[in-house]
Amino acid sequence: MSARAGSFSFDRKDLSRFLFDLYDYEPKLLRKLISARPYVCPFEDIERHIPEDAKVLDVGCGNGALLAILLASGRVKVAVGCDVHEGALASARMAAERTGNAGHVSFLKIRGFEELPADSFDVVTMVDVLHHVPEGDRVKAVEEAIKRVAAGGIFLFKDMVEAPFWRRLAHNVDDLIFSGEWVRQVKTAKVEAQVKAAGFELFESLEIPRIFYGNTLRVFRRL
């Protein structure tokens, strides 16, 4: 698969191959883990909610896989990725450069969610981030993210499922192995209530199973 805009498929196998080729500068194990993400994370369901030529903020972008996919597909006009880990951001910058569309994206290291860019965005994504945030800070994290959504814009939230138990356990073990954290699941209903109270409508709600895992996807629009 070409990493250039204009010839891109959201087939899971193609996405996996694309990421494996794109991140060939990473250690072998990490490269394989990144390339396995399309089999766990529903990138195709995320992409279809992002308008053409959108201005996108990815909160907790990590090594930039989502933004790299969107850049390579020609989906975004302007993008900003934010994360607390400089090592992950360095990898994200290199991946963006290799898509041929690095001029459309910038990356910012933040110490807290209050340091997110003050601009307004057509789409703000928070993908598999909130369960890593201490429970007492989660309301603030969501509050700061949705502040950046423009009128009529989209807040796209994805995290791991709360149930059934065995899918939740699969996520917990995964995070324990790869991040050293025994995380506590996000209460999706609380996120929904908070975002709706801030003037958004929930227009898509999905539970998406993948292998042993489960994804909770919520898509909101600012009224």
Rank of each mutant, 00 (worst) to 15 (best):
T188L: 11
K140V: 10
V186C: 07
I177C: 08
F121D: 00
H171N: 05
A118R: 09
K109M: 10
R148D: 02
W182T: 08
F121P: 01
V123G: 00
V149Y: 01
I154R: 02
L156S: 02
H131W: 06
E143S: 04
E181Q: 15
R167M: 09
G112E: 09
W182R: 12
V142A: 00
I110V: 08
K140Y: 11
T125S: 13
A170H: 03
A170I: 03
L116C: 04
V161F: 05
S106Q: 14
D159R: 07
F113P: 00
G153D: 02
D119T: 15
M160K: 05
M126N: 08
I146G: 00
L116E: 02
V142C: 04
V127A: 05
S120E: 14
L156Q: 00
A189Y: 14
A189R: 15
A163N: 13
V129T: 15
V105K: 10
A151G: 10
D137M: 05
Q185G: 11
V173H: 07
R138T: 01
D122T: 08
A170P: 02
A151I: 10
V161N: 02
V149K: 00
V173E: 12
R111N: 15
R148Y: 07
G180Q: 10
F155Q: 03
K187E: 12
F121Q: 04
L108H: 06
N172Q: 10
D175I: 05
D174Q: 04
